[in-house]
Design a protein around this nucleic acid. Structure first.
Lengths: 148, 148
DNA sequence: TAGCTGAGTTCGAAAAACGAACGCAAGGGA
DNA sequence: TCCCTTGCGTTCGTTTTTCGAACTCAGCTA
C-alpha cells in the first residue's frame, strides 16, 4: 500500500523512481544497453533468479520500455527483448549514473567498457541544462516550486 | 552472493546502479532533493517502515552521499541528513529521471512541483553530450567497446 | 522415438520489508 | 522531583520478496 503508491502518484519524478527503483531493474537496463536481449543471457550473465527476471521483464514490457521481437534461429521462431523508443530514451538516466560512477566510485581508472561518440570519438557525459539559456545547472541553480 | 556482487564490480555503471537500485533509495533521494532532512519527515511523508529507512540512510551515509549535520532546535542538539558534494552530484541522475518522466509518464500536464533556473527562469532538462564536439547524443550515436 | 534447447513456471526455504510497540535522551511544565 | 512530549531510532513477530533447484513445454534434430 505504500511503495506501490509512488508508482501512481501524480509526480513525474516519483513514478520513474518507483519503477526503476525496484531491485534488479537498473542492472537489467544496464545489461540491455550493453546489448543483451535474451532471457537466457540475462539469467546467466547477471545471476538473477529466473522468476524475478521473468517478473522484471514483464513489468518493463507492460510499461512499454521493452518489446518482444520475434526472430529466427535454427529455423525456429524465438523472441528477444528490445528497447522501445521509450526505453531508448532512458539513455540519459544510464549515462547520468555512469558519469556519477566515474567521478565518485572509480578508485582507479577501472571501467568495464569504453564509450565514445561514433562521429568524433569523443567521450560521453550526462549533464543538466537550462532549456532557455542553455547554461549547465546544478541543484543550487534550480528553484523548486511545489505546484499550487 | 549475486546482487551484492554488482556493488563491488569494477564497472562505473553497475556500482551506482546497484546502490540506487535498492528499493526506496531513489525515492529517498527524491525526497532529499525536495528538501526533506529529518528522519521523522522522511518517515511520515514516504510511509516507509522505520527500520528500512534507518538502513537506507545508513547505507547512503556510509557511501558518503549523505552526512549527518547537527543543528539546534528548542535549545536541543539534533541531527539532520544532508547531501554531501557527492550526493549533490547525483542531481543529473534525478533530473534525467524527471525529464524521462515528463516525456513518457505524464498523461496530462500533471506535476507535483515546478523547476526553473534561478537566473533566467527557464526550464530544466537532462541530456547526454559529447565531451569533444558538444553534440547531444542518443544511445545510437555512442559506440560501446568492452575493455580489453 | 528420444534428446536437446530456450524460455519460462513452480515451490519450499531464506532474506527483506512491514508495522506496531518499545527504548531513550533531552527538554518543559507543575 | 515527576510526568509528558519529541525526535530518532531499535526490536520483534508477521507478511512479502527473493532465491535456487527442479520441473514443464514447445519446437526442432538425430
Amino acid at each position: 500500500m505504500s511503495y506501490a503508491s509512488f508508482a501512481s502518484m501524480p509526480c513525474t519524478l516519483s513514478r520513474p523512481a518507483a519503477l526503476l527503483g525496484e531491485r534488479w531493474t537498473l542492472l537489467l537496463l544496464r545489461q540491455i544497453f550493453l546489448g543483451t536481449r535474451r532471457f537466457e543471457d540475462f539469467q546467466s550473465t547477471m545471476e538473477i533468479s529466473r522468476s524475478v527476471l521473468t517478473d522484471r521483464l514483464n513489468v518493463l514490457l507492460q510499461e512499454g520500455v521493452l518489446k518482444r521481437v520475434p526472430y529466427q534461429e535454427d529455423g525456429r521462431t524465438r523472441h528477444e527483448y528490445r528497447l522501445t523508443e521509450k526505453g531508448r530514451d532512458l539513455y540519459p538516466v544510464m549515462m547520468a549514473l555512469r558519469t556519477w560512477g566515474e567521478r565518485w566510485m572509480a578508485p582507479e581508472e577501472e571501467e568495464s567498457f569504453h564509450l565514445h561518440h561514433r562521429n568524433c570519438g569523443g567521450g560521453v557525459r550526462a549533464k543538466v541544462e537550462c532549456t532557455e539559456c542553455g547554461a549547465e545547472l546544478t541543484a543550487r541553480d534550480v528553484q523548486v516550486t511545489p505546484k499550487q
